[in-house]
Design a protein around this nucleic acid. Structure first.
Lengths: 125, 125
DNA sequence: TGCATGGTTTACCATAGGGTTAATTAACCT
DNA sequence: AGGTTAATTAACCCTATGGTAAACCATGCA
């Protein structure tokens, strides 16, 4: 068994799962509704498994309404993850600053041409 | 091979790895320096493996200086992860608001006593 | 040259993770 | 009762992950 934060991050470490969360931002959805976009690439039990991961991580709550299991988004674990990331905020900002400096040094002119020039003497292989 | 964001999140889904990143916030460190806090629970090759995961995720850069491999923090992938989370920001804020409302409804008095009262009629099991 | 220090690689093990198909439960509708 | 729809469970497969011990590479230094 893992600590909560690890469980959250590992739940987020899968594109299918992240897509499910994104879908749930638009509101409650049943399992088949959630599964629908993936059924070309994955079977229903596959989706059920992903949902179970999200549920165990506390990111999704599954209700019951007749034969449907309406799923809802629960962001509490995301808040913890965001809080963890916040500890790196100053470094991220510094890194953005460096990027800004870099961009200024590379293209000090106000021109907004972002086309890659690739001059003839660019002998990368 | 996974997408970048999945790689980032799964690199973060381990307490040892998160501790290594936290240590690197205080500046460059060699592998043995990074390993030192864990050597009671893990061997050096174990740490090397974790470092490789962080390296592949782009979160750590390993230099070389004589026989040492000075490691540095690289937050670029964290920025992507933070950007992903930002899409859930409004939900997190709403969730905090609900918590605020809840707290107000539970303790509407301005008293700041956060001691758990656990009254006699609190028949939780 | 030889040895100590710093790290990595190899080979191996056990368990967890993502996926499948097939069978099963649960609720609704005639 | 019987059938349909919604979803889960079971059993299985393969690969990835986290860990180890032991051997190995690389550098500095006596």
């Amino acid at each position: 068994m893992q600590d909560t934060l690890s469980q959250t991050f590992s739940a987020l470490a899968d594109p299918t799962r992240r897509a499910i969360l994104a879908r749930l931002r638009e509101g409650e959805a049943s399992v088949t509704q959630l599964a629908e976009p993936f059924l070309g690439q994955m079977t229903l039990p596959g989706v059920t498994k992903h949902l179970k991961v999200l549920e165990k991580a506390g990111l999704v709550t599954k209700g019951r309404e007749a034969q449907w299991r309406p799923c809802t988004l629960n962001v509490a674990p995301l808040q913890d993850a965001a809080a963890w990331m916040d500890e790196y905020r100053e470094f991220m900002e510094a890194s953005l600053d460096r990027l800004g400096e870099y961009l200024k040094s590379v293209a000090p002119a106000p021109a907004t041409d972002l086309t890659p020039h690739r001059p003839a003497d660019d002998h990368r292989r």
